[in-house]
């Protein structure tokens, strides 16, 4: 599946992040291409989420480059750019420890995602002119269709804090998709899901890639899910990248087995 003709969307070169004396991410190289589902795996504390935070602008990386290549637009180096700028450029994310807007309805959560693609200002909102009303209606419809896609349409008017856990994860995905990204970063989307929910998620992610033409980079501990859907897998340990390859290559990689199972695995 290493399709070299596919356009590269995200290119990370030598990304490094230091916290005081601790190097949480150590010169990581990674690319994600159009139409690809890539996975980032590794033991707990390997620096995966820190990597996400650096790429999406929540942390400013200490070193390296994060380059975005939107299709048909000039390349942008986004190190140290604010998260909202990066999201507006077309890379959206979800959070490992669900961060929904709990006192807003499910639909409103998705509508927030539309914020950077709409432009009614203060005056527009107060006067509620035709353009503002139209935009609002479009936002509602867009949000509703997204909710249908992730199977949450019936909960549209519920407060998001009242959703069951698995549904919250799906809502996070819908909210990120509402920003119309070309690349979606999912941080442990299957965490806390039962096997059936995980299967549904599996299908959902593939659908996002195929129908939405959105490339995906995900952090996940559920190996079945990762092996099922990923085109490429990157493995991190202690902040360093120790392997890259297709699911089969990763399965057979002794370094990866060692990282996960410790040294006894060899014996």
């Amino acid at each position: 599946m290493s399709d070299t003709q596919k356009q590269v969307l995200l290119e990370v070169k030598g990304l490094t992040m230091d916290f005081g004396g601790l190097r949480a991410v150590d010169s990581i190289d990674l690319t994600v291409s159009a139409g690809e589902i890539a996975a980032l795996i590794g033991p707990n504390g390997a620096g995966k989420t820190t990597f996400f935070n650096c790429v999406t602008g929540i942390y400013t990386p200490t070193g390296g480059d994060v380059l975005l290549h939107p299709q048909g637009k000039p390349t942008r180096r986004v190190n140290g750019k604010k998260p909202n700028v990066i999201t507006t450029l077309g890379m959206a994310r979800t959070f490992q420890n669900i961060r929904l807007f709990s006192d807003m309805t499910v639909l409103e959560n998705v509508m927030i995602g539309r914020h950077c693609r709409t432009n009614t200002g203060l005056v527009g909102a107060i006067l509620r002119g035709a353009a503002a009303r139209r935009e609002e209606q479009e936002t509602v419809e867009f949000g509703y269709h997204l909710l249908e896609q992730v199977g949450l349409a019936e909960f549209a008017n519920e407060y998001s804090k009242n959703l069951p856990y698995g549904a919250m994860r799906r809502l996070e995905i819908a909210r990120a998709m509402a920003t119309e990204p070309f690349l979606l970063l999912l941080d442990e989307p299957a965490a806390g899901m039962n096997p059936q929910e995980t299967d549904e998620l599996d299908a959902l992610i593939c659908r996002i890639r195929d129908e939405g033409k959105i490339a995906i980079l995900l952090i996940e501990h559920d190996m079945k899910l990762v092996m099922n859907i990923s085109d490429n897998i990157h493995v991190m340990e202690y902040g360093k990248k120790i392997a890259t390859g297709t699911p089969q290559e990763i399965k057979d990689n002794p370094k990866v087995i060692e990282a996960y199972l410790g040294e006894e695995a060899d014996a």
């Binding site: 998260p83 999201t87 959206a92 961060r99 927030i112 995602g113 990120a176």
Partner: peptide, 10 residues
């Protein structure tokens, strides 16, 4: 509700 999620949503 959540500053970080808010900026991450653009």
């Amino acid at each position: 509700e959540d500053e970080i999620a808010c900026v991450a949503m653009g």
